[in-house]
Amino acid sequence: MKKEDLPQDKSALAHMTRELCYVKDKDGKYSTGLSTGWKVKKDALDNAWEDIHERVKEAALAVKNGDKSPVFYFMELRLMDLAVLSGYTGFWKFNIKRHFKPEVFRKLNEKKLAIYAKAFDISVAELTNFKG
């Protein structure tokens, strides 16, 4: 890539930094240039977020329909998977999956609810009152 071809498109990094890229200067030697972003990868990132938003919406609907518990919804909202949530809570993945069931979730004690609430960075009330 030549220095003059380095894209300077808008991106989510706008308020944080420009990123360093390796480019060829006029003499054909390697040098570095700063880029504000590249549309091609911004589109990829936007697409990934669209997908995340859709998954969160579906998760909310599943809670509303009584198929899933709020634990499932907040896991999706916080972009977590079972491994990450298991890491933050110390619960086994197998148990977390059980806590996805609304009837199991309703029977969780305060201590476990508090652990989930902390992992999701919300209050226990926000967790238990979520209706989808």
Binding site: M1, L13, E19, L20, C21, Y22, V23, Y30, W38, V40, K41, D43, A44, L45, N47, A48
Partner: peptide
């Protein structure tokens, strides 16, 4: 999209580290 992100996102220097 995920391939492109792994390849071009901040940290790669562009072109999946090839440059």
């Amino acid at each position: 999209g995920q391939i492109v992100r792994m390849q071009e996102e901040i940290g790669t220097g562009g072109g999946g580290f090839r440059f």
